[in-house]
Design a protein around this nucleic acid. Sequence first.
DNA 1: ACTCTTCTAG
DNA 2: TTCACACTATCTT
DNA 3: GATAGTGTGTCTCTAGAAGAGTAA
Length: 587
Amino acid sequence: MLPCMPTAPKPPSSLEEPSVPAVESRNHGEAVSSTPPELETGYYVRNFEQVLDTVTARYGDLLTDSESAYAEDFGGLDERSKRLYVRLILRRGPCFRRDLLSYDEIDDLAMAAGELREAGFLDHGEEAGLEEGLAVLRRPELIELVISLGELTAAATRKLKRGELLEVLLRPQHQEETRRRLWAEYDIWRPLHGELLLLYRLLFFGNLGQDFSEFVISDLGIVRYESYPLSREHRLFQDRTEIDQAFELRVTRHQVYGLLEEGKLEDALALARVVSDQAEILRPVARRKADGILIRVARELERRGEHQQAVELYAQARRPPARERRCRALEQLGELRQALDLCQEMAASPLDETESGFVPFFEHRMKKKLGLTQKPWKRSRRPTLEMDIDPPQGSIERATLEALAERGRRGIFSENWLWRSLFGLAFWDVVFEPVPGVFHHPFQTGPWDLSRPEFRIRRRERIEQRLDRLREEPDLRPRLWPVYQAKVGIANALVPWHPELEAPLHFALERVSGPTLAIFCDRLSSHLRRYRRGLPDLLVESDDSPVGFELLEVKGPGDQLRPEQGAWIDFLNRHDIPTRILKVRWS
DNA sequence: ACTCTTCTAG
DNA sequence: TTCACACTATCTT
DNA sequence: GATAGTGTGTCTCTAGAAGAGTAA
Ligand SMILES: [Mn+2]
Ligand SMILES: [Mn+2]
């Protein structure tokens, strides 16, 4: 791990604006924003406070005293101290060297630090681990420190890398002296309560993948979010238990991944067992997270040949591929009967296409091994086309597209993005409809339930109506093009806006009819997470197709069809949208 | 002096 | 800070 | 052909500063 940069880059000296601003179309060339992006001084404090205030207002009754005090005490600081605290707590740290800190907009760092220390928002980091403290030093200073310990000569340290220098300093016999010298020679500052802020972030965003930079990139127009009314009366977390579970699960996941990285499977397993014990009582969203941890650890157990333990963890996880993996692990254990039973359970109610695709052959294999059948396994056949192609230069899909074009068949690389985009455009207003409880903060690219079956269920009427409309409209352009024009550039989980996608989108809009699109949207809207994968690679013109085009899933040598892909191919053919596998051979 | 990586700020 | 897809290696048939 | 493991790009921004590593 590399050190945090101990420096605080100066704000860029204001560059001279050219008197005649160059005409630059940023943001995908939508209307030129006339406002030169500029943020007021201390903008980051305002954003910070907005998060604290929102969370306090929405979750105040569920917060502990110390959690509430965090926001309240912060509010009591003066502006200077707030700025310093936010500057530091938002950086990687966790420790900083006083001599390398400098912010133009904070006039008196010492005074700010003094107040922060008094209010319990800053310390000298002596409690921090030595490793974290040492992270504030650059390589030359580490060398100096190593030499001062008398362990190595200057010459001997020359070639050592940063990590090796740290290793020397962290040796048990040197730790005490290293620690003493580090804190004697450097004034180290460490902002406190990062863990409380993490909780506030989780409550504000509902995840930890988003952070304060959302405010900035949004204010600057770098990312444009759709505007929708927030549901203030609906909380993402219903009670304290739910908050704790969500938070704990994220912490645990982080720990588990770290442990597995270090090869400490036993410790990871211990954590996984704790998760496993409480998996039953988790609500769906938390349950998914828990399942992810269980599956990850169980997978590692499988690799080590610990199939029995893997089976136990898989048994507590719901989401795919937990059952498939459990079947395979049971097979390894020789528990063929159990494997078959589980497999038939899956057959009765598959959770996704990996499950329904797995069931047939595995069931057959178990029956064969149990002596319940003799028949050989026959794979289901799908319409297939073969083609010889020259060079594998670039992607095989592109090469195939060119080869088809040479034969007078124009097409585009469509895969998942095209159909998701068309779905997103055709249902834009439905997606952003303010259904209660699905919009919690201003930086969402879609409603909270977009990927789940609830999306369809909760908007049943409107979705059915829209599908009916589509079924009446041969030409999609009058409906979708205006949406495209109006919304281009606005962040939407369904719609990527790369400029180079515009041409293929046009190509598709000229050829895909409303009734055809309705077939895709019907399926996608019913359970996006389940159906967003596996769509065929190419959309190609076709004269003898009832819909004017056909879809092709390109398969090179050594690439085989995945269950989700097979499921889409079968589905589309059932609905009279010609879809084939195109096997490519090198000529 | 060079490339590569990480981090920050807006 | 994931997820979907493809490629490669290895073993089995 | 089945399976596991790995690599790639990814609409969750991006220019620029500075450090690390390397080589001459
Ligand atoms: Mn593909
Ligand atoms: Mn393909």
